[in-house]
Design a protein around this nucleic acid. Structure first.
Length: 906
RNA sequence: GGGCGAUUAGCUCAGAUGGCAGAGCACCUCGUUUACACCGAGGGUGUCGGGAGUUCAAGUCUCUCAUCGCCCACCA
């Protein structure tokens, strides 16, 4: 005998092992030689990560598709793997070292990298096991890592190839610099945050007049949010159409303290409405100013170093040709080596003291921050490697236009195009140690040799110099997303021409969160199209992001992280999976609420108990059940409903409407199968012929077996477990059993049983209105039944009696006295309850009923008397309305008759 | 500043191609009917955010306004 409740913990662990042992997740397992393929590459989780709700959702969706297609007999590959996650992993390991009072720098690069590798080996298995715990069925025998040897080979191949085509190049540009992590980052890794600060208005004295803070003709006013960069100012710009200020063009101002002479220039990009209308230009510390500087050939004067500390003394260009005034000396003394925040304060003090501070206005504006470090980034002039993304984007754009790749939901196309159409060079070098080191070697004269190996680089250098020269390798590593972009083809063995690539590329679908559309999806499109000449996936399914109960993003610092492992321990992996799917509509947010997960845990218990009932009442039969051979309408009905739900589920999964599939199954199992079918057959189990009993028992088990199959992609553990216990299970695991394709339908039986369900519900509702004790058996008197009704009533009377607690059904022409009445279709149902009946209450109830009906009738009549409606609406709609009207009129007439009976007998 | 999405029952949300407003949870009443109390039966009057338009017909399509959220953007 089974326990009353399902215990997921033991079961899930046991079954996960069984699957793995049987090798059923191997690519192509169980498929025919000529089967269609279906492939997915997993979004590789960070190697140091641990399972969070986003992973749980993402992998559940993929697993549903994979299990579904595997059961449909396809040759399925789900390629797993992990990402080395450059910055993230390096940060984690550095933090660990810091706890041990060690540092990366002291350790040296080689040792540090070894340390990271050790950490990866330890940590990598954790998330893989957590994914197994969730039941995901990827082929772990083929696990790949974005830093493994074969993958590195792909990375080198791509880098060298793009370099030689001129699509990768080195450039000295302003770059987003993270002063905490001390590396360049790409535009995408910059987060704009609104900061409430000030706008400071400075007075810069005009050249050739004596500066007087009280005389506005002796200075110009410029506004800035970044006072600390003023020492790098090289010009002042105004809009040429700014009537107020354009006349200043050509004059010069003196940069306070420093004494540098700044020309006032005109440039279209200046907004005369903004700030004071005059902008100070600091090309070394601002992207916009950098462009203006380039247009006007202005000098670049850098006053911040890589740590964003102010550097004055060491700055040769800054000092050149300047007399060091007293003030300048003082400035250097106060500022040199200070960090940017202190520097700002000190500059402001000095400006104020010297009368150069004109005004301060509170001002809130967007300040770029590093997404990992959280500190404000600095635009800094450095040498970095870039990809010409605009070039690579072209085929990636047209492929989506041509629908070679479909984005779901399709609204994301617009976002994709907008970004791709405006894509800028992608900075791919990072000043980190953990990652793919850039395959570039430099000769003594700085000449760069880009080759896959040092040997090859040396060979080329030998040819170039005519003699052997010492080469030094570029110290930088590549952006993690550079290697992630190769995932769909490199994980299948590229650059080798592998059988896997042949068979499984392009993949069918990529499942990912919409937050990765630029970081990852777009870049995979670019790289894959360039190197494979084919899209990486036919479909991209973008799902919502998991939020907490109140809709906020989960983060460790907020402490609102919901741990999927804990939820699985509490409710089981199946319940978690089911709730994620139920919530994964196509919105943007998905709120996790444990009450809901508990609800699906209850659903597991419900299913478990249906199986338990089956085991108790319909144990093993040596019987090959064939739906077409059934005789009993109750069976033919439930089989019809099962066919309906199975095709609904199949269609829904195939079109990625997972929520719909899950809802259909939930409602079939709970409402149709448990609440009605099992209740309906209970009386039959005690009191039926042998052949009927065999049919019923066969039908119950057969339905459950099919339910297990249909539910398996959603709830793999419990269904596998129940499958193993069910009579029809031979040695096969459910995971590789064929998906059911059901055809049996008997609409007549379905009509009968749906009528029965409605009838019983109506009687129960009437009983409820009368507050009859549920144990009380009553007599049901039926008035106005026709032959058809009578036939139905007698065929199903044992079911009706049991489910509605009726001791006897009789037929009358008139309603009996002291009976509660209710109209059901064209009959009046009466329950004579004698003195228990409160006639007045009944009258009120019936009157209210009539009122409702009249409203409906009025509405439909209005519709039908509208000629436009009759003329223009589809004929089946008009017919349906007429039929409804007829039904309501019968209802009205019968209800009035019931009421009249009371009125006349009172 | 631009783009996208949301607004439906107390809460969380479903409602493809317009045609009788739904589910789960919560709540109330009743119930130890031999699978399940993680259960069963019964219980819903919601200006479908406001306004306008198209249509015989609008939660659904168009416009507009409001509120909220997200993404993108170099603006001092």
């Amino acid at each position: 005998m089974l326990e009353k409740t399902y215990d997921p913990n033991d079961t899930e662990r046991r079954i996960a092992v069984a699957w793995e042992k049987a090798g059923v997740f191997r690519a192509g397992a169980g498929a025919d030689a000529r089967a269609e393929t279906f492939s997915i590459v997993i979004p590789p989780p960070n190697v140091t990560g641990s399972l969070h709700m986003g992973h749980a959702l993402n992998n559940t969706i993929q697993d549903i598709l994979i299990r579904f297609e595997r059961m449909r007999g396809k040759n399925v590959l789900w390629q797993p793997g992990m990402d080395h996650a450059g910055i993230a992993t390096q940060m984690v390991v550095e933090r660990k070292l810091y706890e041990k009072k060690q540092s990366r720098k002291e350790m040296g690069r080689k040792k540090f990298i070894q340390c990271v590798w050790n950490w990866c080996h330890d940590s990598g298995a954790i998330i893989a096991n957590q994914l197994r715990r969730l039941g995901i069925s990827c082929d772990w025998s083929r696990e790949r890592f974005t830093m493994d040897e074969r993958f590195s080979d792909a990375v080198l191949e791509v880098f060298v190839s793009l370099y030689k085509k001129g699509l990768i190049y080195k450039d000295k540009q302003l770059v987003n610099w993270d002063p905490k992590l001390l590396t360049a980052i790409s535009d995408l890794e910059v987060e704009q945050k609104e900061i409430k600060g000030n706008l400071w208005y400075f007075r810069y004295p005009l050249e050739g007049v004596l500066f007087n803070p009280l005389d506005s003709s002796t200075f110009v006013v410029v506004a800035t949010t970044r006072p600390e960069t003023m020492l790098g100012d090289v010009a002042i710009a105004v809009n040429p159409n700014d009537r107020l200020h354009a006349k200043l063009v050509g004059r010069r101002v003196i940069l306070p303290f420093v004494g540098r002479k700044l020309s006032i220039i005109s440039d279209d990009s200046v907004d005369p409405e903004s700030g004071s209308g005059l902008v100070k230009i600091t090309p070394a510390h601002d992207f916009n100013d950098f462009d203006i500087g380039r247009r006007h050939r202005l000098a670049l004067i850098s006053v911040l170093d890589r740590k964003a500390d102010i550097v004055l003394k060491k700055n040769f260009e800054f000092m050149k040709g300047l007399e060091r005034s007293f003030l300048l000396n003082e400035l250097i003394l106060k500022l040199d080596g200070q960090n940017r925040f202190v520097g700002r304060k000190k500059i402001l003090e000095m400006m104020k003291e010297a009368g150069y501070l004109h005004e301060i206005k509170p001002y809130s504006h967007m300040v770029p921050h590093g997404d990992r470090s959280g500190v404000p980034i600095e635009p800094i002039l450095t040498d970095q490697w870039y990809i010409n993304a605009a070039e690579l984007a072209k085929p990636a754009i047209s492929s989506v236009h041509e629908c070679s790749t479909n984005l779901i939901p399709k609204g994301w196309k617009k976002t994709y195009f907008y970004w791709m159409d405006n894509i800028k060079p992608w900075c791919i070098s990072r000043q980190l140690w953990w990652g793919h080191q850039i395959p570039a070697w430099y000769g003594p004269d700085g000449k760069v040799f880009v080759e896959k190996t040092e040997k090859e680089a040396e060979a080329v250098a030998l040819h170039y110099y005519g003699q052997k020269m010492r080469l030094v390798r570029d110290q930088d590593v590549l952006d993690t997303w550079f290697s992630s972009a190769l995932w769909p083809f490199a994980s299948l063995g590229w650059p080798q021409k592998t059988e896997d690539l042949n068979m499984y590329y392009p993949t069918n679908i990529l499942v990912t969160g919409f937050d990765l559309i630029f970081f990852w999806v777009a870049r995979m499109m670019m790289m894959s199209l360039h190197f494979m000449d084919q899209v990486p996936f036919r479909t991209v399914f973008m799902h919502a992001l998991v939020r907490d109960k109140s809709g906020a993003k989960m983060s460790k610092s907020k402490g609102n992280v919901v741990d999927p492992l804990q939820l699985m321990d509490e409710y089981g992996a199946d319940a978690l999976r089911f709730s994620l799917v139920m919530m994964a509509g196509q919105g943007c947010d998905l709120k996790v609420d444990s009450a809901r997960i508990a609800g699906y845990r209850n659903f597991c218990t419900k299913l478990w108990n249906a199986a338990r009932f089956c085991k108790m009442n319909a144990p093993m039969q040596d019987f090959d059940f064939v739906p077409e051979e059934t005789q009993l309408n109750v069976n033919r009905w439930v089989l019809t409903e099962l066919t309906r739900v199975s095709s609904h589920v199949t269609e829904s999964i195939a079109s990625y409407r997972f929520h719909e599939a899950a809802t259909a199954l939930y409602s079939f199992v709970w409402n149709t199968f448990c609440d009605w079918y099992l209740e309906l057959i209970k009386p039959l189990l005690q009191n039926s012929s042998h052949s009927d009993l065999i049919e019923i028992k066969g039908c119950v088990s057969w339905c459950l077996d099919n339910v297990y199959k249909l539910l398996h992609p959603f709830m793999p553990f419990i269904t596998e477990d129940l499958w193993a216990m069910s009579k029809t299970a031979r040695s096969d695991l459910l995971a590789v059993t064929r998906w059911p394709l059901l055809h049996f339908r008997d609409e007549g039986a379905a009509d009968d049983m749906n009528w029965l369900v409605e009838l019983v519900s109506a009687i129960r509702s009437l009983r409820g209105d009368l507050s009859l004790p549920s144990k009380l058996q009553v007599v049901l008197v039926i008035v106005g039944a026709d032959d058809f009704d009578c036939k139905r009533l007698s065929s199903y009377q044992s079911m009706i009696k049991r489910l509605a607690r009726i001791e006897k059904i009789t037929f009358f022409n008139e309603s009996p006295t002291l009976a509660a009445q209710m109209v059901f279709r064209n009959m009046i149902l009466c329950i004579p309850i004698g003195s228990l009946l409160d006639v007045e209450v009944e009258q009120v109830r019936l009157r209210r009923e009539i009122e409702k009906i009249l409203k409906k009738i009025a509405k439909i009549t209005e519709k039908l008397s509208n000629n436009q409606f009759i003329e223009k609406a589809k004929s089946e709609i008009v017919m349906a309305e007429r039929k409804r009207l007829e039904e309501y009129q019968i209802l009205k007439e019968r209800t009035e008759r019931a009421l009249a009976f009371f009125d006349s007998n009172n």
